[in-house]
Write a protein that binds this DNA or RNA. Structure first.
Lengths: 102, 102
DNA sequence: GCCATGGTTCGATAATACTTGAACAGTTGT
DNA sequence: ACAACTGTTCAAGTATTATCGAACCATGGC
């Protein structure tokens, strides 16, 4: 069947509280930090959490994606994860930089 | 008995994830916005939530206080709530401004 | 001292969120 | 087509958090 894309919220539907909640978990925040440097294969990120079950990692990623923080697109056999930085910087100016800088 | 002060975390014990979590709830974020303008009697804040039971409000305030976002000191018969802005600005530069500005 | 006022704490219940194995779905390579 | 590989979804169990009445505590005024 066709490559299946996951749902991503439109930039205007992203809420501040959902973003803050998604970032309030250490494991998720760590993923965001890793991805902040540039897009990463899903298999590659989460290096700090080696034994993490894949279903758990998938769920963490889902929360980040549904909050509008991360974009997750099919890439070959796996998926490429990237930070929606430009969009977030417009929607919540300075937020990402202050969080990642702390 | 003596005036009872509540526990407040030292600035260096405040964690980013706890702060983000405390701010990720709409009702708590609203309280922070109200207090951002200046210290407020506890009875005065929460104007947007008229029917809120006092035990619930007390709990919301506790989460904000334990996260290190708010200071809560006895004031006459009631309590005065204030934002720990100066401290937070040192610990997490730009964070509060970007959250409150969004 | 006594009462009214303003908040905290406790306890029980409801609602959310997290974790994980197992089953399933797409893609690549042979 | 088949097998290997990645990741998603489902479902069930666990854990954390929210809610709110009732009881309690401290203060101020009388």
């Amino acid at each position: 069947m066709a490559t299946y894309e996951l749902e991503h919220p439109a930039i205007e539907d992203i809420t501040l509280t959902d973003v803050l909640f998604a970032l309030s978990d250490p494991a998720r925040l760590e993923i965001v930090r890793e991805v902040a440097a540039g897009p990463l294969d899903m298999a590659a990120c989460g290096a700090t959490n080696p034994g993490l079950p894949k279903s758990t990692k998938s769920h963490l990623m889902k929360v980040l994606r549904e909050a509008g923080i991360v974009r997750n697109v099919p890439n070959g056999r796996g998926r490429l994860v990237s930070l929606r930085k430009d969009e977030l910087d417009v929607r919540f100016p300075g937020l990402l930089d202050s969080v990642l800088g702390s």
